[in-house]
Structure formats: C-alpha cells, structure tokens
Design a protein around this nucleic acid. Structure first.
Length: 367
DNA sequence: AAGACGGGGTG
DNA sequence: CACCCAGTCTT
C-alpha cells in the first residue's frame, strides 16, 4: 500500500509552493491557511503573505491591521491572529526560530495535533502521524470503517492507523519517508479518493481498499450530522460626513475582532430600524436617524444565511448635525474610501465599501 | 461531546 | 442548496 501510494505520488504530486521550499515557516503558514480551506483558494494568499512577511520576525513585527487585511476573504480570522501571536512567541521563547520539538510546536497558538504533525513531517521528515479531512476519508475507506469519522472510537482507530502506516524516517530521503507519505495520503484524498464519486479506477491502491472491494465507496466515510442553517437579517448603516464614513474597530473577544466594520447589528440588539436607532444611539451618544435602504446584500457564510440591509443614516449629536459635532467614542473613526481600502473588513463590510466606491454619491444627496 | 468559526468551492 | 475543505478552541 505504502509503496504504491508513494510511487503514485511521485508521478502525480501537484507543484505547490510549500513543496518547492519546505522550510518550517513556509509549511506552517501553508498549513494554517489550508485549515478548512481548499488548496486552490490558498495559493494567491500564500504568495502574497510570504512576500510581505518572509520570516518569523517579519511576521512577529507585523502591523495587526495589515495582517488582517491580508487575510481578508480567507475566513476563520482567528487563524491570522493566532499566527501573529505564535510568531511573537517564537521571538520571545525560541530566539525567533521555529521550535524543534513536537511539544513546543503543539504549544503554539492555532496549532493542534494535525498541524504539529504536518509541520514536523512535511518540513522535517520526522515520523509524526496526521489526520485531517483527506486522510480521514482515505483511511476510513481503506479499512472499511463505516462509523462516522467524527466519533471518538473512529478517531482513535484512524490516528492509530495513520501512525502505524508511517514509514520510518530515512535520512535524506524525504520522498519515501514521513514527508512523502503524509503528503501522498492527503494528495490521494484530494485528487482521487474524493468525497463524492471517488475515481477508484485511477486509484493506485484500489485493489487493497476495503470500501472498493465491497462497493462501499459512497457509504464511507459515514455521514456526519448535518448542519443547521440559520437565516439571519442584519442592518448596517452608512453615515457620512464630507467624504468620510463612520466605522468602528471590533473589540477583542468577539467575531471579527480587530477588523473594521460599519455600524451593524441584528437581533437581539436591533431587530428593526427602530431598534437599530436606539442601539446606535447607545453606542455613539446623540441621536441617529436611519433613512432609506441603499441595498440589500445576501451572503451565505458557514452555517448562516444572511440578509443584510444597508441603510443611509444620519447622526445628530447635541442637536447639531454631525458635520459640526465633536468627538466620537474611542473605537469609532471617520474614514475615506481610500483609507477603508487598507483596513481589514469582513466580506460583507467590503461589499458595502464597494457600494460607496461607485458613482452612487447622488443617492446621498439628501444628506 | 458539541458548537463556533461570519469564507469559498463544488456538484 | 447541501456538503466539504491539509482544524482549532471553547464550553
């Protein structure tokens, strides 16, 4: 099984940037970006990231806002913040070097058992097992494991198998060692042993595959409980003053932490325009009047199906129009479209910016 | 053990 | 729309 797989991999491996140069730093970045994200999506982000932050120290010194801006669109934004924290930790505790031991790697924020094993094996050809979406599916089919791979017993079996299958480290032979094997197993899952309609006729190990022999390719891996989608309606407000727009920095500890957003809320804080007016007044002080709806944006993300109504708004502080009003709370600021372009925002936030960018200024004429 | 994570690709 | 993606962290 191992030999055929490795042979197949040497002929069919994709030419990925972290395979050409597999330093721990590069492999680390690639692994974090690839978490819950397809490889093709990662590629442009990876190149840009590496040229902006070529070393651990560059990343540790990175401006958090710029870092988040670079991550924009990849989702699961905590990954970017964990990267930053981990780089700082390496500067503090490991002299700016990537730590050597598995336990020290595992102790870095954002790195779990899979990622630690992937870095140690792929970068350093050390014998540590991995288990992620691809290998979970490949190994489950290979041994005919019908219980859903998320269950505890299945996890134990699969990790054990992943470890048992691992070839011993052979010095200077990455392609036949743990580095080659782990990547080959994942590559097989990505290119051949796909979730739906696996290409068993092209599979190098089909003759040894339990699922293939029993015709269970479509039943394995076992189904995991399906996600409950949630419809959600939110309201965002565009408040302008001259050529600037009112935005805020999202505080620590909540979703979109460290990113910039227009005033936005949904139930329970603000279920409708009236609720939104009072929520905003609370946040800003003074009165906020919400006007016409500029556009309704539909956005599906993770388990949410969001409808976002983007309204024009006007903020009146101390009875004066906002144009003449004084200070705003700390986390808020007025920003031009050009400034917004460099700030990290959610995908929906960016869509709002694009509304402002177009020749629709006339829509604001009532202000 | 279960849910959150607020992005995107694929059939 | 449903499901999946080189998972991790929190509760």
């Amino acid at each position: 099984m191992r030999k055929r797989l490795l042979s197949w991999f040497s002929d069919n491996a994709r030419d990925l940037p972290w395979r050409r140069d597999h330093s721990p730093y590069r492999v680390w970045i690639s692994e974090i970006m690839c978490q819950q994200t397809q490889v093709a999506t990662v590629l442009p982000y990876f190149e840009r990231f590496l040229s902006t932050y070529p070393t651990i120290r560059d990343l540790a010194d990175a401006d958090e806002s710029q870092l988040m801006r670079m991550w924009e669109g990849l989702g699961y934004y905590r990954r970017a913040r964990s990267l930053h924290a981990a780089a700082k930790k390496m500067v503090e505790e490991h002299n700016g070097e990537f730590p050597e031991s598995f336990d020290d790697v595992l102790a870095l924020p954002g790195i779990g058992r899979y990622t630690a094993g992937a870095i140690q094996s792929i970068s350093r050809n050390k014998a540590f097992p991995i288990l992620e979406g691809n290998t979970q599916r490949v190994f489950s089919r290979w041994i005919g494991l019908t219980v859903p791979p998320t269950e505890k017993v299945a996890q134990a079996r699969l990790w054990e198998l992943s470890d048992k299958m691992l070839p011993p480290r052979k010095a200077d032979d990455r392609s036949n060692g743990p580095a080659g094997f782990n990547q080959a197993a994942m590559e097989l899952g990505a290119l051949i042993c796909s979730p739906r309609s696996p290409k068993c006729d092209e599979c190098p190990v089909a003759t040894m595959c339990h699922a293939n022999q029993m015709g269970l390719q479509d039943e394995i891996p076992g189904k995991i409980s399906k996600v409950q989608y949630e419809s959600r309606t939110e309201l965002a407000v565009v408040i302008s003053r001259d050529d600037r727009y009112l935005v805020r920095t999202i505080p620590e500890g909540v979703r979109f932490a460290g990113m910039i957003d227009f005033p936005r809320a949904g139930p329970p804080e603000a279920a409708d325009v009236v609720g939104m007016e009072s929520w905003l007044a609370d946040q800003l002080g003074g009165d906020v009047r919400i006007g016409m709806c500029l556009k309704t944006i539909k956005h599906a993300v993770t388990r949410y199906r969001m409808t976002l109504h983007v309204h024009i708004g006007e903020w009146i502080a101390d009875g004066d129009r906002v144009a003449e009003s004084g200070p705003i709370p700390d986390s808020w600021q007025w920003a031009t479209v050009d400034e917004l372009a460099d700030m990290p925002m959610s995908v929906t936030g960016r869509k709002i910016v694009r509304l402002l960018d177009r020749p629709q200024r006339s829509l604001f004429s009532e202000l």
